[in-house]
Design a protein around this nucleic acid. Sequence first.
DNA 1: CAGGCATGTCAACGCTTGTTGGCCTACAGT
DNA 2: ACTGTAGGCCAACAAGCGTTGACATGCCTG
Lengths: 201, 201
Amino acid sequence: MDATAPPPSAAPAAPARRSDATRAAILAAARERFAADGYDRATVRAIAQDARIDPAMVMRYFGSKEGLFAAAVDVDLRLADLSDVPTDALGRTVVVHFLGLWEDDHLRGVLTALLRVGVTHPAGAVRMQEIFAAQVLPAVLQAVPDPAQAPARAALIASQLLGLALTRLVLRFEPAVRLEREEIVDWLAPTVQRYLTAEAP
Amino acid sequence: MDATAPPPSAAPAAPARRSDATRAAILAAARERFAADGYDRATVRAIAQDARIDPAMVMRYFGSKEGLFAAAVDVDLRLADLSDVPTDALGRTVVVHFLGLWEDDHLRGVLTALLRVGVTHPAGAVRMQEIFAAQVLPAVLQAVPDPAQAPARAALIASQLLGLALTRLVLRFEPAVRLEREEIVDWLAPTVQRYLTAEAP
DNA sequence: CAGGCATGTCAACGCTTGTTGGCCTACAGT
DNA sequence: ACTGTAGGCCAACAAGCGTTGACATGCCTG
């Protein structure tokens, strides 16, 4: 929490220290390891080795392993623009956007790490709750007529999209892995569309 | 794998040893710990303490921590009878059955443990793949006209149902936790129904 | 009653983990 | 050119892990 690192977006005039490259290397290695192994198996030593630095540097820059995790999974889902999407295209738009997130290398690492850690480590679950509340919920609020129903609808959408990521990218169920991108869109878009626009049952 | 424990259903005449109570206590404690903490944080020592025995007993009865996990997550989803369900009631039947699984204390523990461990530990992911292939897929095959489409449809259903379990029981997204049982059925049944019976897109 | 096997305890092992403090190096400001 | 400081490495720590083997206890069979 008292990380020596400057917040990526807070300080307007970044001091541009000499150690920025090292810090970035640590963060990249950490994301990869957390995504591949989860919180406990992603050891500080392994991350340090990947980044070709000493484990002590991790502590110097991020205070602790938890601090490193918090810094590594700062993510922006870029879900701002649902208000000017045609109502009957909402489902498809959301699914396509979501699949797009997993194709960006950086985001893919962050999201997989979040999914893996969120399931095992309390801090990870809290982080996912925060992202849901701060990014997913507001976006759904833009697209839904009755604000009171937005949380439930957002949760249903999250359950389907995270469930897909889970079976396809983490558990690697073979049929889920085989699905083509367009197939996924065609199957899931109506589901999300219904969760967004159908009358509450 | 060479666990001293008798397979629960293999030997027809169970010897009924004196240590069965201990073994059961260990298994129960293990399921609880694996479900609550995941594979790595569920230590053999903690499980032994919960079961009020010595950690060495775990090794004696189950060979290793991995052996204990394998024995603890032996699960039967009881999904055999989809062939005589009316076609247009399939979705609702599946969702209701799935929600019922989570209300049995034993199954709830096993399933949560599987979900938590499957995400972090390779052995857990393999186990979930096995269960999917051996239990979910055959059941879906009974309910679907074209067998070639069954795997993809089964994977989609698994993604939605596991996604719900994930957001509700593991990540504990607040709106997902708040959903009533009937609401879940009403929202998810049409989704599952479509994944089962809708024409492939 | 004696022996043997199942049951259980205890203490210790080797290893890995996160974390710490001391020390070296090299660049920047005067 | 000299010095302060930021960047980086090394060795070590205490704690916790899974696992092991030797030893105690009690039950059942002969």
